[in-house]
Amino acid sequence: MASEFNLNCPAPLSNYDKVLLGHGSGGKLTAELIKNIFLPAFQNPYLAELGDQAIVNVNGVKIAFTTDSYVVNPIFFPGGNIGELAVNGTVNDLAVGGARPLFISAGFILEEGFSLSELCAVVESMKKACERAGVILVTGDTKVVEKGKGDKIFINTSGIGVIEHDVEISPRKVKPGDKILINGPIGLHGIAILSRREGIEFEIEIESDTAPLNFLVQDILSVSKNIHWMRDPTRGGVSSSLNELAQSSNLGVEIWETEIPVPEPVKAACEMLGLDPLYVANEGKLIAVVAPEDAEKVLEAMRNNPLGREAKIIGEITEEHPGVVLMKTAIGGKRVVDMLAGEQLPRIC
């Protein structure tokens, strides 16, 4: 039994022996933490799916279960705040599993000295977000940490939902020829946050796209049984989600730069800051992989929903280059879109 007792962490963490901010970026460092530390400790078939939610079967009912923590800084940003984000984020993680979100919980970690009026504003917007998404907040917890040991407010939300159809949404269902759809313009949330955090002011205010996607998901599931995969591309952006898709399906992902909707202000901000919109976070976007014969139908269903007016088909699944995301550039070249290594760093010049 002695061999099981090992004080040394076996994980080779790319030479880092401490947690870096990059470990929370949603890119490769995060994936390494999960693969090397969390998965080996808790191995089970539900976790091994590595979805945004676990799907469990309880007495014949398929239930989706998820959890997420919110530490966004600043807590109020153009287009939303940490409370609304905490509700929508968990709703969306359930929705992209094909579930109808029902109940959520909230855990608050508050810093000593945090203003109660700000807390009220956060809670008020959580209430509105619950109403909008049609979920009920049924349980919660509050902890307070000493001043300086937290940053105003951190929120954890967990949620459960039911799956009331027999569509299997899984990388196993993804096939060459499938189309890749997105419900609208990318990069808004990340740039909205950054514009406040770095004290950078843009001439046009960029607002976060935070929104609950569950009704949009219901709309597309009502027109097609051939939805093979869904994700909300949050941290790490569209590129990280598509890399996960390429790797978990072991197929190639091809996207078309001219078809990917990037709003002008996001483009301009990214040009200035040396960032790539494909890696910038979204909070109200849905990527869906759909059988080719249903792609137009699903696109139309998306466009009929207020959250999908600018939906587009941005690419397709290929047999070539399995595990790799390739982009056809606007000028006719091709390039690999890799997963982000750590944090996206602004380039020097």
Binding site: Y16, K18, V19, L20, L21, G22, L345, P346, R347, I348
Partner: peptide
């Protein structure tokens, strides 16, 4: 520093590691 200097490895560590310390 400009952002992308933080990940340049020195002989033992990088500036990100110094930050985490």
């Amino acid at each position: 520093s400009f952002g992308d200097m933080l990940r340049v490895p020195g002989s033992k560590k990088d500036l990100f590691t110094v930050k985490s310390e």
